[in-house]
């Protein structure tokens, strides 16, 4: 199987300081990967490179071109209705039908003609998700897409993302600083710190994952320790 992302020795520096320092990353089709890190760890820089918004030297940089991005802010065009935002740039004769289906999947079929500035935060982010998925990406890049949502909306978005992932099977790369989000969603968790991956964890627990499960608890504790939140207990 050809990996969707195959990166060796990726280095990116700003003004002499290396933000990414020799990163290796491969992602298989359909795999859900979470990228955890503190702010300033380079995780957004890595995602921007994967999204094609930034370039950096690497020994090998192989990337699928069928990728789409959901950012932390919805980034909808305020002067286009929700459906036009989703259909924009689709090269397909039935672009509007596809956009309608995509919005239906995220539960927004009643908001097709709404102006983006009238949407709630959750609705706007679901529109952004529809806009990303309607392009049938092989690689879905999520840059802290739930960070500015309230806790309840965030949990509902987790379920929605899992449901859509099961249905469409893109590989997902989720950048987050929310440890539970990573544990709840991902097959594999990578921790980025000062431009290096310092940990890789495969999460072999059936979904839906419960927070009171002892196994998720152990992973959460280990990750929090990596992020410097909990003191080492030995």
């Amino acid at each position: 199987m050809i990996p969707l992302v195959d990166i060796r020795q990726l280095t990116r520096s700003f003004g002499g300081a290396a933000v990414l320092d020799g990163i290796d990353l491969t992602t298989a089709p359909g795999e859900f990967v979470a990228l955890l890190g503190r702010s300033g760890s380079g995780k957004t820089t890595l995602l921007r490179i994967l999204a094609g918004l930034d370039t950096a030297p690497a020994e090998k940089l192989q990337l699928t071109t069928r990728r789409s991005v959901v950012f932390q802010e919805p980034r909808l065009l305020p002067w286009k209705s929700v459906i036009d935002n989703v259909a924009l740039g689709l090269r397909h004769p039935d672009a509007r039908t596809l956009a309608t289906q995509a919005l239906d999947e995220v539960g927004l079929s009643h908001r097709l003609d709404a102006w983006p500035l009238t949407l709630s935060g959750g609705e706007a982010q679901r529109s952004a998700l529809a806009r990303a998925l309607v392009r049938e990406p092989e690689l879905l890049l999520l840059d802290e897409p739930f960070a500015s949502l309230d806790a309840l909306t965030r949990l509902r978005m987790h379920e929605l993302v899992l449901a859509l992932w099961r249905k469409h099977r893109p590989a997902v790369l989720l950048v987050t600083h929310d440890v539970w989000e990573a544990v709840a969603l991902a097959d594999r968790i990578l921790v980025l710190d000062q431009g290096h991956f310092i940990r890789e964890i495969n999460v072999d627990i059936d979904r839906p994952r419960r927070r009171d499960d002892r196994r998720t608890g152990r992973i959460e504790a280990a990750l929090l320790e990596d992020l410097g939140v909990l003191p080492t207990q030995d």
């Binding site: 999204a51 980034r75 065009l77 924009l88 740039g89 806009r131």
Partner: peptide, 26 residues
């Protein structure tokens, strides 16, 4: 950020001018 979003949607320069820059400057 809107222009970047357009780039990730594979909009070309003409489409970015037409759908993002002109309506944004209106």
């Amino acid at each position: 950020k809107l222009i970047e979003a357009g780039q990730t949607m594979d909009l070309g320069t003409t489409s970015i001018i037409r759908h993002i820059i002109i309506p944004g400057a209106l």
